[in-house]
């Protein structure tokens, strides 16, 4: 009955106020409401969270790990984006 298999959802949890939601795993559920309820039962049995997001896995677009070297190269080669690239005269301790 694979056509009837419940869709897969990715679960994101905010562990406390002030922090981002973080991916914690996935689960299967027929709809968003059930996905939320299941996420609460499966991923927060020990006060791990104060807020949950669920997103259908099929809706996520991801970068391809096979291309990751070329894809992220522009950020690796621009050392001048980091403060350590710059020379400061002696006497300046904090900037």
């Amino acid at each position: 009955m694979s056509t009837n298999e419940w869709p897969l959802w990715e679960v994101f949890i905010r562990s406390k106020q002030g922090l981002n939601h973080k991916h914690v795993g996935s689960l299967r559920a027929p709809d968003a409401e059930m996905a939320l309820q299941n996420a609460r039962d499966v991923y927060t049995r020990r006060s791990e969270g104060i807020s949950i997001w669920v997103v259908q896995s099929a809706l996520i677009t991801a970068s391809d790990p096979a291309d990751s070297e070329a894809y992220f190269e522009p950020s690796d080669s621009k050392v001048y984006r980091h403060p350590t690239f710059y020379d400061l005269p002696d006497g300046i301790e904090h900037m």
Partner: peptide, 24 residues
């Protein structure tokens, strides 16, 4: 016992990331 159910679910999800369906 409820924890063990949870453990099973985390692991079925991990299995699915390898390209097999949960039902299978």
């Amino acid at each position: 016992v409820q924890d063990e159910a949870g453990h099973g679910l985390y692991l079925y999800s991990a299995t699915e990331t390898l390209g097999v369906s949960r039902e299978e």
